[in-house]
Write a protein that binds this DNA or RNA. Structure first.
Lengths: 276, 276
DNA sequence: AAAATAGTGTCTTTCAGACAGTATTAA
DNA sequence: TTAATACTGTCTGAAAGACACTATTTT
């Protein structure tokens, strides 16, 4: 219709409700999970300023938009990786960040979720093998890996009164959604291997499942099940030099296989009661 | 820290990269699915203006933000329902829209996805029982239920050259993601009942699965399986007056049960090859 | 009468989970 | 030597899928 793209944009903007011009800010927040000392940890930053000063929050920040009418700016997953890199002090092209699994979790935009202005936040979920402590890195003064168990999250996604470490904004809800997503993903995808190094043992993989699901699994059945799913893991032929903490034979080493879905799936035990 | 929230907001805005001020618009797009004549249909609008004039698009529009510093404006799911109501001519409080299943699908924000400005779009997925034709309603001149099969979508989410009915922006990708989500949801949730009326027969429910999954199911095994999953359907005790199109006994009538997850799940047949 | 459909019965295979048992290692 | 651990074998019950079969309805 109009060959001039700027005329086009003026038409476009004129055709909509003027309330659309009220500012909406778009941010990304990242739920970065890892396993440390056998427990599930999440990367949190300490807020220095109001609102929610002194409380913890998920790492995140504004999406760089690019100027109007142009195609500059960054894609949403790039913004998530950038925020993660800034907070951990790792470079975005580091091998450790490159092996990371990143997926979109959901978008949170309820009016009033930030008391200052309307903010729509796109949350990402990251699964990382054990990463260095954030304080070793760059300008990430306040970031640290925090045991998820210490946050006292309930199933409904909030923190009961008396919880010492409280999360700002609606970040308890976002983290809760991320944990539930992670628990489900381990059932039907091989993403538990994203928490491990390049080579890992079956007992290490089982420890990932136990940390994320929060329950102990039967070692023998787990072992046989993992090896029976085509493409979940492939043998390296080697044997680990390490062994279990209190003895036992040296476990064999495996790599992640080429499956993208687990078939049949590894279902969480004892979910029959939670279904209604 | 600062008791004045406007001072607070100024601090807040001053602390971030100035590129954050470049405008980002937030829209919602809706993938509304229904079953008509035994086939899966999606609600599409015809675009009258550039860009993509004459092409089809998902219904959608700007999220009403509310003014700065206040908590006005609409929540994202409310915006999705509003867009759907505007396009179908139904009122947002109609029973037919009230029974609708609505869930967030994902957020699409790649720079350049709209040639005019940076737009981040939150996509919603809706499952609807058969709704009236949009043209009967209000100002929804260009909306219509379109057979998904006519769009020629490939697994990778694009339309090969030569497709007659083309989708604007990245809406082929969004629709493709919505279809895959719907296929998966039918496996482990009872949401197929959201495509049916209040009362339905097992063969009608099977027709929903066949339309969404695009393959025929074994009638006998499907029947036994549905009845064996606790809480999927509950009997009304009544028998339908209608029967199969070419004869057969009158099927019994059921209502949706109280299950929120299907256990054990109804898995799609023949997915072993698609896993890697 | 013929064909299609609703619903049930039965058999086979697969798989999850319980349990037992052997070999290997640390304490 | 004891205890923990890695792994394997075996059994049972649940469930999916193939197939057969009866009863009911339309054409």
């Amino acid at each position: 219709m109009s060959p001039d793209p700027r005329q086009d944009e003026r038409d476009f903007l004129a055709n909509y409700d003027p309330r659309a011009y009220d500012p909406v800010a778009v941010t990304v927040d990242v739920v970065a999970l890892t396993i440390r000392d056998g427990g599930l940890h999440v990367l949190l930053v300490r807020r220095g300023e109001a609102p929610f000063a002194g409380m913890s929050a998920l790492p995140g920040g504004f999406v760089r938009a690019g100027g109007p009418g142009r195609t500059g700016g960054e894609d949403l997953p790039d913004a998530a990786v950038r925020e993660l890199a800034e907070e951990t002090g790792l470079q975005a092209d580091d091998a450790e960040l490159g092996r990371l699994h990143l997926e979109q979790l959901g978008t949170y935009g309820k009016p009033g979720r930030d008391p200052r202005m309307r903010i729509v936040s796109v949350a990402y979920l990251a699964f990382a093998p054990e990463l260095p402590d954030p304080r070793a890195g760059g300008d990430a003064a306040g970031a640290e890996w925090t045991p998820v168990a210490a946050l006292g999250l309930t199933e409904s996604g909030d923190q009961p009164p008396g919880t010492t470490r409280r999360l700002a904004f609606d970040h308890a809800r976002i983290l809760s959604d991320g944990l539930e997503r992670a628990r489900g993903k381990l059932e039907y995808t091989p993403l538990a291997t994203a928490f491990c190094g390049d080579e890992f043992t079956i007992p290490e993989l089982r420890a990932v499942y136990e940390a994320v699901w929060g329950e102990e699994l039967h070692a023998g059945n787990f072992h046989r099940k993992v090896l029976s799913v085509p493409g979940f893991v492939e043998s390296t032929g080697a044997t680990a030099d390490r062994t279990g903490r209190r003895g036992g034979p040296r476990p064999r080493l495996y790599r992640a296989g080429d499956a993208r879905l687990l078939h049949p799936a590894l279902l969480r035990p004892g979910r029959e009661e939670l279904i209604r």
